[in-house]
Amino acid sequence: GVVKDIINLTVYGKAQNRSYNRLALFTDTIGNRVSGSENLNKAIKYMYNALQSDKLENVNLEPVKVPHWVRGEESAMMLEPRNYSVVILGLGSSIGTPPEGITAEVLVVASFDELEKRAAEAKGKIVVYNQAFVNYGETVQYRSFGAVRAAKHGAVASLIRSITPFSISSPHTGWQDYSSDVPKIPTACITVEDAEMMARMASRGTKIVINLKMGAKTYPDADSFNTVAEITGSKFPEQVVLISGHLDSWDVGQGAMDDGAGAFISWEALSLIKDLGLRPKRTLRLVLWTGEEQGGVGASQYYQLHKVNISKYSLVMESDIGTFAPFGIRFTGGDKAHAVMKAVMQLLKPINVTSVDPYGEGTDISYWLQAGVPGVSLNDDISKYFWFHHSNGDTMSVQDPVQMNLCAAVWTTVSYIVADMEEMLPRN
């Protein structure tokens, strides 16, 4: 009756809404937690104390060096055809502008292809990208490489339509990458509304001039930590099921959805197992990553440190795609392991969350997956996830306690059973 006990405790019993309430206290107390910030340091200390108070085992901090980028003051004032304050959020790693800003005419393009065709017009301009949202993976290329592609043709700055399918004049930030062989130019995201407005203006032949000011600065890498806690295995303590989410966030909103909730349902899994008096045969290790938003920096350093034990990792799990109404899990692994996971998920019939779809993924577990370790991510209703992602809208108001209970039930069931089975998950 283990799964029944897990469901009863988290969905109907004394632990219901606990992960939501813990997350609310955490985010209301700490706020957002960008890499290198004092807030992130406070968050790590908070969690270190909380995990110890929860009487989890081997609570420890693993040192990590993380990027330290600070946004500073920023603005974009349209000077022609009319005075208008364009809503912006600078993109992570962007350089700043001179104090007086950069004033330049705008070139609006709808795609990289159009930019290439109109490359001769880009020199000395601020390139505005008004790319359509196709899906996150495809469209995020504009955020990641928009500045480099524009600078290659002599642009002085780039403004990129936020990577979201829906907007109420909400800019969405995120990391962007420079290239060593192209001059660095300031880059920020703008709202869907402003991108479309400038595209309309440009299509009429209207000249657009913007003064862009960004006070962004990059400091030397900062000290940070991956936060680790365990329930030690009873029979194979050296073997590990890793369950995780990331503690850092962007510097807007509260980082409640991305990825406070993922981190907190992972913590909840260990809490529930402990509350039920269970101890799996293998060690269940909680890792709350740092520096995920800068490209999985904490996860990369964890992998370098622990890959020597890769043969002992039965399963790696990461929740970083929301904790909305769950459908089941996504799984990366061989056919036999996939069949095992299907059998595990059948145990969750009482809450009707049984699907096992391919492509378990997550930035922080990607190194392990590439090396052949089976991996799981949550499969939940992400239809609104990118509405709030990396924006001021990522707050507790996005979260639903009942949905978090269901996600916690899935997360706990999968992690506990895989950690408790007689054999590790088979690998191809």
Binding site: I310, A339, G372, I417, P426, R427
Partner: peptide, 25 residues
């Protein structure tokens, strides 16, 4: 590069594993 990935489990038949998992329900 990681050490060679252990083959993990796989000694037991899927039927055996499924029966074991069913025991958690």
């Amino acid at each position: 590069k990681p050490m060679q990935v252990h083959s993990g489990g796989g000694e037991r038949s899927l039927e055996d594993i499924s029966m074991e998992i069913a025991g958690y329900s």
